[in-house]
Design a protein around this nucleic acid. Structure first.
Lengths: 212, 212, 212, 212
DNA sequence: GATGAATGAGCCTTCATTCAT
DNA sequence: TATGAATGAAGGCTCATTCAT
């Protein structure tokens, strides 16, 4: 192995890691195999990453922090509306829901742009601290959803509309479906269409639940 | 270990396997721990099962074959209708759909009755040949769904309504949600209510898709 | 390797461990070398011991618990005298000191009987939880010594006789010397004579310190 | 790292080595950590020292050679007396012993002035060629002691007074105690007092053995 | 000279499976 | 058929040292 550029080797390891983690998942992926694929010794690996999970983290962290940033932002904004306008008009509700839908679709597109990494994060992270990442997001969405429903029906009436578990089941299905869209769509356009399909589909269901 | 009945020992291993596979998943479960829990030596284990996966299979196989039987039956029946009645009436379609929904809910209840095994099969099978079991079911449902849509719109028009991937995404979400219902509901009644909620929710979405 | 008796293999490992730990110390000792020496695979090793340190512990623990037992007993007895007789007579002091000396010599003889293990514990335990074992004993002795001096001079006057550090320095020297006696004497008789020499030597020094 | 003076860098490495070797001992000390602490690359390190042990040696060598010089000197002088004055007077013996004691105390003070390095040499050298350094000194002292006792009792009578091993055990205890004094005293004054305490203590013991 | 990425043998440990008894 | 000790390849990781630039 030529005594190469740090960054070149680093990226070679990142690429091998991405490939092998994607193929086999974090748990099954063999560090020596990643090193071999990168044309690097195991010793060299540890000059670039603290351990196996650090490689995974470095691959996945950009997308993770982006998502966290998004939720931070979203939470603040949502809370803002929540305290300022009471009573809430139907129009406001619709705006919130529409903005949520648009946000979801844009997120899918962002994930699509980072397909491989996103796939890693969602479907290959078993054995890492990210293994429940999507579930954590779903839980945030559960809370947000509950807030919105509380705006509409009042905090005490929500439970007559749907249970907490009901909300969770539907959100879980929704966000996993969107994840699949990001991972399995072949083009940006296809991703957008699929995300819109799923979103409309779920909005319809929510409409039914809310509407009556 | 008293030289007990073969069957007694066999069942003890099955029970320990069920417990430990459920807690840790197939992959992480330690065979020695299962043996210890059963009060059986590793050598004895291999008198009962070919290997670790054989234990998992035996646990899971009853439910698997039940499901397969169900789909075999369903397929035949569906195909039956398909060839016998043309042109198809709206009423027939509705009957088919309703029967599908009912079938789904009953399936959830059946899974709920076999909660632990079902959980194993769906959420603990990573590393076994069953790791894609639910996906395989979803694929069958995709085909069924396509048949139904073909009955309504004609085989050539379906693609104007929804893509194959669209069908798959929605079905995937649907069956995963139903699986969660079976696994996480605390009572049969709760399972039924949740299954009905999810089913109505998804029917609403499908109605929208079909309706246009 | 014949599929041998558990105990036979266990002892073979213990013996190899004793030998190699003694030669190289815990830290430098190579587990594979111990296994090779025992004619056992590394896998087999872990059927007998939890890890490298567990082997060391099992070798050393009998002597450790014996010593602890001795100090437990000694402490109780010493404390007993301390509370019962006040003011203390010179005669009592002498009896305590003589009993301490006799105890020390007997301990050396006990260690001599367990030479190899004792050597392991005192001089080969770097890297284990026993690495400061002798220091811990010395600290106990420091406290005991302080008690005795307090009996003679009163708690407040001791510091005019000798500092805490002074006590510690001398005790440290004493117990290391006794350890060397146990480890390097070739016969029980030699061990006894050396232990007596060291003890008389140190008693003389203490006499001088006390005497003024 | 600014392309500093060779010597500046060299000293920085020496200082980091001193610090880290003292904290962790030679064996456990990590060369990369030493380099990092010095702000030097590993490559650069090997421009300054042949290997890890060479760094240790350079730190410790000044004190080592000083000690060797001392013993060389001492040996010559002692030998001198031995051949010149026969029969030896009691007064001469006392002078020799007193000078030895004074020498020991001064040595402790010298070690105290070089505390850190001395601590390295005596308590942190496991894994280097210095690991038995103090033992080697003790052996020299054993020989010197034997010479003195031979002067007093005649070469053939010494063995009636004390065995070689007895001498060694006591000397070992003595020099280890003095080493502890140098390392653990907080001030020069404390070091002197402790060294005097230990020396008087041991002289008392020797007096008993010799004289009476 | 200095750089610092790379080396690679070595470490302890795990675990499904085998097989002599 | 049951036993359970033994297998042995594989795992992630460490670190003094080397060497192309």
């Amino acid at each position: 192995m030529a005594n190469g550029d740090y960054e070149v080797t680093h990226n070679r390891i990142l690429n091998s890691g991405k490939k092998i983690f994607k193929d086999q998942g974090f748990e099954k992926a063999n560090l020596r195999a990643i090193c071999k694929e990168s044309g690097v010794t195991t010793g060299a690996f540890y000059g670039h990453f603290d351990d196996k999970e650090a490689l995974f983290s470095e691959l996945v962290e950009p997308i993770v922090s982006q998502i966290k940033k998004y939720y931070k932002m979203y939470e603040d904004k949502s809370f803002d509306i929540y305290i300022r306008e009471t009573p809430i008009t139907k129009d406001t509700i619709n705006k919130i829901l529409e903005s949520k839908s648009k946000g979801a679709i844009e997120m899918v597109l962002y994930f699509f742009e980072n397909k491989e990494i996103f796939e890693l994060l969602i479907f290959g992270s078993y054995g890492t601290k990210y293994s429940n990442f999507l579930d954590e997001i779903v839980e945030i969405e559960d809370k947000n959803h509950l807030k919105i429903l509380s705006l509409i029906y009042g905090e005490n009436q929500v439970k007559n509309i749907i249970t907490d578990m009901g909300i969770h089941l539907i959100n879980h299905a929704y966000y996993y479906a969107l994840s699949e869209v990001a991972v399995h769509s072949e083009s940006r356009e296809e991703a957008r269409l699929n995300a819109e399909l799923i979103t409309k589909f779920f909005n319809e269901g929510w409409g039914k639940i809310r509407g009556l």
